[in-house]
Measured scan of single mutants.
Amino acid sequence: ADDEVAKLLVDAYRKNDEDKLEEVKKRYNISDEQVKRLIRKVL
């Protein structure tokens, strides 16, 4: 599931889509710190 979330985050990140990032964060209840970590893992 982590990889799936990471893909969604990276996708939103690449598109610079703040709304999507927020949506994913809320849906999976993850912190900014986790977001950064997941994005770093993929990029």
Rank of each mutant, 00 (worst) to 15 (best):
Q34F: 11
R27C: 07
I39K: 01
N16C: 15
K25V: 04
K25M: 10
Y28N: 02
I30P: 00
K25I: 08
Q34V: 11
K20R: 11
E33H: 05
E33Y: 05
L8D: 03
N29W: 02
I30H: 00
L38V: 06
I30C: 07
D2F: 14
Q34M: 13
R37W: 13
A12V: 03
I39F: 04
D3F: 11
K36N: 09
N29Y: 03
D17T: 02
A1V: 15
K25F: 02
K36W: 14
V42K: 08
D19V: 14
A6C: 11
K7P: 03
E33F: 05
V24Q: 01
E4M: 13
V24N: 01
L38K: 02
L21M: 11
N29Q: 07
R37C: 10
L21N: 00
V10F: 14
L9K: 00
E18S: 14
N16H: 12
V5P: 04
V10N: 03
N29I: 02
K15V: 08
A1H: 13
I39T: 02
E22D: 09
E18Y: 15
N29V: 02
K26R: 12
E23W: 12
V35W: 11
V10K: 04
V5D: 01
K41W: 12
A1P: 14
K36S: 10
A6G: 07
D11C: 09
E33M: 06
A6R: 07
Y28F: 11
R14I: 14
R40K: 13
V5W: 12
A6Q: 07
L21A: 03
V35F: 14
V10D: 03
Q34K: 07
D2C: 12
D3T: 09
E4I: 12
D11E: 12
L38Y: 06
V5R: 02
R27K: 13
D17V: 03
V24T: 05
D32K: 03
L8A: 08
V24K: 00
V35S: 06
D11S: 06
E22H: 08
R37S: 12
K26H: 09
K41A: 11
K15R: 14
K26W: 05
D17C: 04
E4W: 14
L43M: 10
I39V: 08
A12Q: 01
D3G: 09
V42H: 14
L21D: 00
E33S: 07
V42A: 13
A1D: 12
K26G: 04
E23I: 06
D32A: 07
D2M: 14
K25P: 00
R27H: 09
R37G: 08
D19I: 13
D19L: 13
K20C: 07
S31T: 13
I30W: 10
L8R: 04
V35P: 00
V42T: 09
K25S: 03
L8F: 05
D3W: 14
K7E: 09
D32R: 03
Y13H: 04
D19K: 14
K36E: 14
D17M: 05
R14A: 09
L9Y: 01
K15W: 09
K7G: 07
V5Q: 02
D19E: 14
E33G: 06
V35N: 01
K41L: 11
K25G: 02
E18P: 14
K36Q: 13
R37E: 15
K41Q: 13
V42I: 14
V5F: 06
Q34I: 10
V35E: 03
I30Q: 01
K41I: 09
E18W: 15
L43H: 05
K7D: 07
E23H: 05
N29S: 07
E22L: 11
Q34H: 10
K20N: 04
N16E: 07
I39L: 12
S31D: 08
A1T: 13
Y28K: 00
D17G: 02
D17S: 04
V35G: 03
K7A: 13
D17F: 05
A1Q: 11
A12F: 05
A1I: 15
K26V: 07
L21T: 02
I30N: 00
E33V: 06
E23D: 08
V42L: 15
K41E: 12
R40H: 14
V10P: 00
K36M: 13
D19A: 15
V10R: 05
V10T: 07
K26L: 10
D11G: 03
D32V: 04
K15I: 09
E18M: 15
I30R: 01
R14N: 10
E4Y: 14
N16A: 07
R27F: 10
A6E: 10
R37N: 13
V10M: 13
D17E: 05
V5A: 06
D11T: 04
D32L: 04
K41R: 10
E23F: 08
I39G: 00
L8T: 03
K41S: 11
K26F: 07
L21R: 02
D3Q: 09
E33C: 08
A12L: 08
A1C: 11
D17Q: 06
S31W: 01
Y28G: 01
R27G: 02
L8C: 06
A6S: 09
K36Y: 10
Y13N: 01
Q34A: 09
D19W: 10
K26Y: 06
S31A: 03
N29C: 07
E18G: 13
A12D: 01
V35M: 13
R40L: 14
D32S: 07
E22A: 11
I30Y: 05
S31P: 04
K7H: 10
R27I: 10
R14L: 15
V42P: 03
N29R: 05
L43Q: 06
D11R: 04
R27W: 06
R37I: 14
K20T: 12
V24Y: 13
D2S: 11
L43I: 09
K20Y: 10
V5L: 13
I30E: 00
I39Q: 01
R27E: 06
N16V: 03
D19Q: 14
R14V: 13
Q34N: 07
A12R: 00
K41H: 12
S31R: 03
D17A: 04
R40Q: 14
R37Q: 14
V5T: 03
L9S: 00
E33L: 06
R14K: 12
A1M: 15
